[in-house]
């Protein structure tokens, strides 16, 4: 029975010669489509709504951000305001907090001041390890 004994010449294995090519193709596809997440920034915890805390003026450092980017600093119990550049706040905060460890930073930003300046002040405060920061908007 010649017909039944004839063996097929087609291999019954999956060809593996192109496996590396397929792997490289997939590799290049994923290399190109990968987007590494850029989730970073300055974290802050907002107070919950209707959560108001009375703070003695003595423990507040008023930081006022003006539209031109100048920053006024005034102690809660004083009338003297000194003006600084945003990045100088780091040094100011370190000096102030060494005199009063309970100090809270009250950052009041003018409505028309650029977001950039508020971020710079927040950055300076966080670089100086300030933990208690309150963000408010000043009057226009």
């Amino acid at each position: 029975m010649a017909i039944l004994n004839k063996k097929s010449k087609i291999s019954d294995e999956i060809p593996s010669a192109s496996m590396a090519d397929i792997a490289f193709l997939l590799l290049i596809f994923f290399l190109v489509t990968t987007v590494f997440p850029k989730d970073r920034g300055l974290p802050i915890v907002l107070p919950e709504e209707q959560e108001e805390v009375e703070i003695s003026q003595r423990n507040i450092l008023h930081i006022t951000i003006n539209p031109d980017g100048s920053v006024g600093v005034r102690r809660g119990d004083s009338q003297n305001e000194s003006f600084h550049r945003p990045h100088q706040i780091q040094q100011v905060w370190r000096t102030e907090v060494s005199q009063n460890p309970n100090l809270i930073a009250g950052v009041r930003t003018h409505p028309e001041a650029a977001h950039r300046y508020m971020v710079q002040v927040l950055d300076a405060l966080q670089m100086a390890n300030a933990e208690r920061i309150s963000l408010q908007m000043g009057e226009g």
Binding site: D39, R40, G41, L42, P43, I44, V45, L46, P47, E48, E49, V119, L122, D123
Partner: peptide
């Protein structure tokens, strides 16, 4: 107002 409190200013 939505009750959320954790904010990150992306930089």
């Amino acid at each position: 107002q939505a009750g959320a409190i954790y904010v990150v200013f992306a930089t």
